[in-house]
């Protein structure tokens, strides 16, 4: 039985040669549609990334009392590094803050005399890339958590950043993701219909197979495999074309003040993209079979 199934699956691949021009044209159509869809996905992905970088982060600045010991500071900083959604943490002892101040002033001021009596407190600048729905509640809870740390004198954060993050999350939820879903549906329908039309061309073959006593699965399996192969080839070709576009355009907008670098689709999105096309290839072949 396994040998027969394997034989039929191979037949699904080799059957493509029986109508080479139709298959080549179908493959070209699937590839181009998938490429256009992928291009749109690539733009949305990069827009998403850029907006997340620009507006999806919230920063908290934590100040410790001047008399807080170094050991207590180090252990608290270590604990802070483990916080969920923390994208970046910058920590400064009072002396480090003083050095940084001098550096930023470009050597025009000498504050070395303050070393023994440094008024700058130890501080930590925490940047979070938050993924939660209720950012207000999250910000309040994080604020209380940070303020309750031993020796902490003050915690501050910019509510404007929270508004920006919330605005971006709303924009992402209401525009980008629906657009990606819509794109997925359009891509699936066009790819599915293209493959279905090419499979309908095999109506004569299906009718003959039925006439000579082929079981239903014997007819279905090679056609489903053919649909999957067309989808897979079209999807892979589209992803390769997208890679070519990404490589040739990645530095196009990488200049001041934009500094945008075009990124390729992450592996998970590329695989999901491919899976949608393969699944549509199989489904459309199945629909075509039901219509013959």
């Amino acid at each position: 039985m396994f040998r027969i199934v394997l034989k039929l699956m191979l037949q699904g691949v080799t059957d493509i040669r029986h109508h080479p021009w139709i298959q080549v044209l179908t493959l070209a159509a699937v590839t181009l549609v998938a490429f256009l869809g992928g291009l749109f996905l690539l733009v949305l992905h990069n827009l998403d990334q850029e907006l997340q970088r620009a507006g999806g982060d919230i920063q908290f600045q934590v100040y410790w009392q001047p008399d807080t010991g170094q050991d207590a500071l180090q252990s608290q900083w270590a604990a802070l590094r483990e916080l969920e959604d923390l994208a970046e943490i910058k920590t400064f002892t009072g002396d480090q803050a003083l050095d940084l101040l001098m550096q930023r002033l470009g050597g025009t001021g000498d504050f070395a005399w303050l070393r023994g009596n440094n008024p700058l407190p130890a501080t930590a600048l925490l940047t979070f890339a938050i993924q939660v729905d209720d950012q207000q509640a999250w910000a309040e809870a994080t604020y209380l958590q940070l303020a309750s740390l031993e020796g902490v004198e003050k915690v501050s954060f910019n509510p404007l950043q929270l508004d920006l993050a919330r605005g971006w999350a709303r924009f992402s939820n209401q525009v980008i993701w629906p657009l990606i879903l819509f794109l997925g549906v359009v891509l699936a329908l066009v790819v599915g219909n293209t493959i279905k039309l090419s499979q309908l061309h095999r109506r004569n073959e299906v009718e003959i197979l039925r006439l000579v006593g082929a079981a239903r699965w014997y007819i279905q399996l090679p056609m489903l495999v053919s649909g999957a192969v067309l989808g897979l080839l079209g999807g892979v070709l589209a992803l390769l074309m997208l890679k070519g576009v990404q490589l040739s355009l990645q530095d196009l907008l990488h200049f001041p003040p934009l500094w945008l670098r075009l990124e390729y689709l992450p592996f998970s999105q590329a695989m999901a993209f491919l899976a949608v096309i393969v699944v549509m290839g199989v489904l459309s072949s199945w629909v075509a079979l039901r219509e013959t």
């Binding site: 039925r210 006439l211 000579v212 006593g213 082929a214 079981a215 239903r216």
Partner: peptide, 8 residues
Amino acid sequence: GRIHLLRR
């Protein structure tokens, strides 16, 4: 599902 048996 058994028509193919008749057609054999």
